[in-house]
Amino acid sequence: MRNFYGVSLRNPFMLGTAQYPSPAILEEAFRKSDAAVATVSLRREQGQGQAFWGIIKSLDVHVLPNTAGCYSAREAITTAHMARELFETNWIKLEVIGHGDTLQPDPFGLLEAAEALVADGFEVFPYTTEDQVLGQRLLDAGCQVLMPWGAPIGSGLGLNNRYGLTSYRAAFPDVPLVIDAGLGLPSHAADALEMGFDAVLLNTAVAQAGDPVKMAEAFAMAIRAGQIGGTADPMEPREMAAPSTPVIGKAWL
């Protein structure tokens, strides 16, 4: 598996920590998922932050703080600096949102923030679209990982633009690519790994399932299957049938 800023993950599963029915279910879902990375955020201290941090520290995960909810480069940059001090990591999942309905990244703000943060020593994981021009600009800015969306955050629609994502994978063969956002089912994750993506990042699909712990396990299995299948040199699809049972030697009946 490709590494992420020099870190080799034990598996390609990055899982969010929001929206679980309870802290206990969050913890159990993480254990079942065996996710290697946990995304976290910063919010105004209202008394629960300290306990939450205790849970995250008890999980065997790399912490990836996000800049969720930021609508400008400036906000995202300040948030990233606060996250770096708080979580003691240079990793930042950079989100600069352009529109409240789609939660689509603002490509201009994203690039501006990425340039500033890379210059400040951050290791940026940009949440982006499948736009290859933007992808190249983010790489030029010093990003060493790209995270194109599968579909809008929280939509559960899966890989909305398979052509675009296949083409994105082909355009950046040596860059670690993570499908971030929009996955709803384990099969979506398997699909992403089979297509050659290096990891998936999801939250709502597990946290908002009726049984988050079971769903976390299902995603873990699908991700594993997709990863192995994707590297096993899959057959080429074809339009016509081709018998799998030998034709020669069939009885004359």
């Binding site: 920590t17 929206q19 976290v40 105004r44 932050g49 941090w53 969720a68 929280g154």
Partner: peptide, 9 residues
Amino acid sequence: EVLAPMQGG
């Protein structure tokens, strides 16, 4: 602003 670790996706 005084921010603390919080759940995030």
